[in-house]
Amino acid sequence: MKAKHQRLVLVVLALIALVGAGLLAAYALRNQASYFYLPEQMQADPPQVGQAVRLGGMVAPGTVEMQADGITVTFTVTGREDSAVPVRFAGILPDLFQEGSGVVAEGRLAADGTFEADKLLAKHDENYVPRELQDMDEHQAAEMARETTIGIE
C-alpha cells in the first residue's frame, strides 16, 4: 500500500470487521438464543409450539416412568405455586438425574402441552444446583444444601 496512512487504514478495516462481527452476533443472538422457562412461566405464558427453549425445575418424586417402548421416559417437572409441566424424553437419563432434584430440559413444547426434551442437564454434583434453579424454592434449596454438606464443620 502506497498510502501514507497505512496504520489508519488497517485500524479502520479491523474495526469494521470487529464491529461487523459484533452486530452479526447481536443479530443472531436475538434470534437464536433459546429462552429459559420455569414451570410456572411455561404455564402462564407458554412458548410457541416447536420453538427451542429450556425448561428448568425439580423432577417431581414418583413421576418418572419408563414407557412401553423401553426408551421413552416421562416425568413431571415442578416449580413454584404447584406448577407442573409433563416432560417426555427418549434416551438415556443423565448420570445425576434423580427424582426430587433439579433438572434443565432442552427441547420444545408439543401441541398436547407436553415438553419434548432432546437433552437433559442434571445437577452436576451433590453440592451444585444449576444456576437457573437457584432462586426456585429457597426452602427446597436449603434442604438440599443441608442434606449434601454434612461432614464438614
Binding site: 443472531a28 437464536q32 438464543a33 433459546s34 429462552y35 432442552e106
Partner: peptide, 17 residues
C-alpha cells in the same frame, strides 16, 4: 430475562469468519 445460547448461534455465526 434468562436465555441459553447454544450451537444454533455459535456454529453458523462463527462459520462466517
Amino acid at each position: 430475562v434468562r436465555v441459553s445460547v447454544g450451537p444454533p448461534y455459535f456454529n453458523p455465526v462463527s462459520a462466517i469468519f
